[in-house]
Simulated assay, not measured.
Amino acid sequence: MLKNIPFVDLKLQHQPLKAELENSIQEVLERGDFILGQAVEKLESSFPTVCGVKNGVGVGCGTDAIALGLQACGIGAGDEVILPANTFVATLIGVLQAGATPVLVDCNVETALIDLEAAQKAVTSKTKVILPVHLYGQMVSPSELKDFAEANNLIIFEDAAQAHLAEREGYCAGSIGTAAAFSFYPSKNLGSFGDGGMVVTRDSEIAKKIRTLRNYGAPRKYVHEIPGTNSRLDSIQAAILNVKLPYLKDWNSDRNQAAQKYDILLSPMKEKGIIPIKNLSGTGHIYHLYVIRVTDKSPINRDTLKEKLGMAGISTGIHYPIPCHLQPAYQNLGYKQGDFPNSESLSQEILSLPIYPVITEEQIHQVAETISQIIM
């Protein structure tokens, strides 16, 4: 008998950790250090360490991690930041909140990652930052990023919101450039029970400035040296993340193995237009999302496939259906339909299939077989 398959199953993933999670929350309650407490300090030490850098600063969400991180790097009004058009809008919002000018560029249609050749054409005398998005759990090539940044004298600021412990070319996400932003949204590979984020950086002075910015611009209580905001990672969320962090590597491995099974099962469907987003990172891809393209060779389009999978009890997602440059709120940036053809075509093709650490081989087979039945 076929069973419904959720897009993600956090309840099942958390079940074995129930006692640990409850104890960690109870410890915070007993200490009463709800804001910037002991649990936050622990996470700010342990998470950057596993990323391969020295400093971490917990903030309210991944968007704030981008905005405050860029500000701490000295980026603001008049500075241009290059980023991909096919990312979640939070990347764009973070740049705008920092006061900088976002410059969007297209992506590689096979990997969905930023096209650095397109980025090169977008560099001007005002460009200060290249902001790669490690999309779906796969890193942009560190060597290519470093060469690009060095050739153009740019800061590398990574959006690693979907790439917790992703690896490529011997680098871990967050360790390539000056700083990186992470999100701990519940569905992330390392997720809290609410919003949360962190900036990791090898630069102690940048970390110090972010700590000030996140706390009303005050390096110490009631002394506000710079304009700041209130964006602090809650102690309870940090406590939850501290419990989950030791399991992250194995969870990522489980996701990668699930993706490999999908690859094998979907391979015969390539002639029918079903093509997974290309993995150039091997086991370093941590598959926050497993995304396929439903190309024009398919007998049905992406939306029809999504609808039919839903009717069969299989939940899917689209990440993301509207590129940043076509979002209604950001038409003032001056972009138009046709500016980024790869991003636009992908937005009509991509479909995210169920993937999570506890997904079973039976469930993966059910998803693949259902797709096969629909398109054949």
Results as ranks from 00 to 15, higher is better:
Y356F: 14
A119M: 10
Q373H: 13
F47A: 08
G58D: 02
N152D: 07
R214W: 02
L36E: 14
I355C: 04
Q257Y: 01
D263L: 13
L266D: 06
P328K: 15
S352E: 13
A329I: 01
L36W: 08
E117Y: 06
T101G: 02
I210S: 02
K261W: 00
T360N: 08
A160P: 03
I277E: 09
I322G: 03
N189Y: 00
Y216E: 14
S267Q: 15
F7H: 13
N4V: 00
L83Y: 00
Q120P: 00
E80W: 03
K146P: 01
A112K: 01
L36M: 15
P48K: 08
I286M: 08
L245G: 04
N215H: 13
C172L: 12
Y290W: 06
R168G: 00
S183P: 05
R202Q: 15
I318D: 07
N332M: 13
A77T: 12
Y185W: 11
I25M: 13
S46L: 15
G58F: 01
A151D: 14
I300G: 02
P16W: 11
V81G: 01
I318Q: 15
E362K: 13
R220S: 11
G174S: 11
H325C: 05
H224A: 12
E369N: 15
I371T: 07
L2S: 08
